[in-house]
């Protein structure tokens, strides 16, 4: 009785189609890859946020995760490897009213782009980072990355990685991030809520998504399919909202601490800039409002 009804749903439109470049779907991500689920969560949050489409921009780095910018029907830019955060910072400076989202991988954000990350967090730059942590450089075939847990095997770590990985929430927390959360690709509801909160949070928000990479990470480590990875997350995730980020390090195939760890208010880069310059320059200082200043142009 398990017959395929090929007509089912053909004439209907997916609820997120207005946010997707449907001409580019199906996307390139492998079956069971968590990046698609994360993009789904992100677009759901964008839809729920009520932020007009023209006021949101997506910036990606290079890698499997970086492909996201190409699928969203929003202003988006696929930058060079590691440079998503400086590009996003520039966008935010040039147009402070924009909600700027960086969607990139652990290699992009923490290896080649690591310096940009720590300084954007230090400045409490008002941008939102969605970091796909699949524990490796997936697009280039599975080299180990700064988040690869010790003992995990990858092409450049055939006997298992012996480097100490970053504890990412602790890193960004200690640098000054004001919103820090970690979820897995299984925690779709909580992830969507966190992204929604981050979109409305003034200041530097960082959401780490532990994401299934069946093709490279799981295959190298014989961990099975994407579904097997989700089952692992289900059995081994412990939700600890407000946990001390120092205790959130990840060990190979051990307990995963997830949750919202940091949510605090602190003046953003723009707040402190406006305050300091108004004090020192006085009335001559006119805060920059962006290119649309004065023009009440209300397209979609």
């Amino acid at each position: 009785m398990k017959r395929l009804d090929v007509t089912l749903g053909q004439d209907l439109r997916h609820p997120l189609e207005e946010y997707l470049r449907m001409d580019r779907i199906p996307h390139v991500w492998c079956p069971g890859c968590g990046i698609g689920t994360t993009l789904n969560a992100f677009l759901t949050a964008v839809k729920k946020s009520g932020i007009p489409r023209k006021d949101i921009a997506v910036v990606s780095g290079i890698g499997c995760s970086g492909r996201a910018a190409g699928y969203v029907k929003l202003d988006s830019f696929h930058t060079t490897h590691g440079r998503a955060i400086p590009f996003a910072t520039g966008l935010k400076l040039a147009n402070p009213k924009l909600t700027v989202v960086v969607f990139a991988g652990d290699g992009d954000l923490l290896a080649i782009g690591g310096n940009h990350l720590i300084h954007a967090a230090r400045r409490n730059m008002d941008i939102n980072i969605i970091c796909i942590n699949n524990f490796n450089y997936a697009m280039t075939g599975g080299q180990f990355s700064p988040t690869t847990p010790e003992k995990a095997r990858l092409t450049t770590a055939p006997y298992g990685s012996y480097e100490h990985p970053f504890n990412v929430p602790f890193l960004v927390d200690s640098c000054g991030a004001t919103y820090v959360a970690r979820w897995t690709a299984l925690h779709v509801r909580r992830l969507t809520n966190s992204i929604l909160e981050a979109l409305h949070h003034p200041g530097f928000s960082f959401i780490e998504v532990i994401s299934s990479c069946p093709t490279v990470y799981a295959r190298r480590n014989r961990l099975g399919t994407g579904l097997d990875l989700l089952k692992f997350y289900r059995d081994n995730s412990v939700i600890k909202n407000g946990a001390n980020t120092r205790e959130c390090d990840i060990r190979f195939q051990e307990q995963l601490i997830v949750g919202k760890f940091v949510d605090q208010e602190k003046p953003t880069y723009h707040d402190t800039m406006t305050e300091y310059l108004s004090q020192s320059v006085g009335k001559r200082y006119v805060p920059y409002q962006g290119p649309m200043q004065g023009k009440e142009e209300d397209g979609n």
């Binding site: 997916h14 698609g36 690709a185 779709v188």
Partner: peptide, 14 residues
């Protein structure tokens, strides 16, 4: 839930 967890935007409910 099926709609939210699908990585491929292939399933949803009404």
């Amino acid at each position: 839930l099926c709609e939210a967890i699908c990585p491929d935007f292939a399933i949803w409910s009404t």
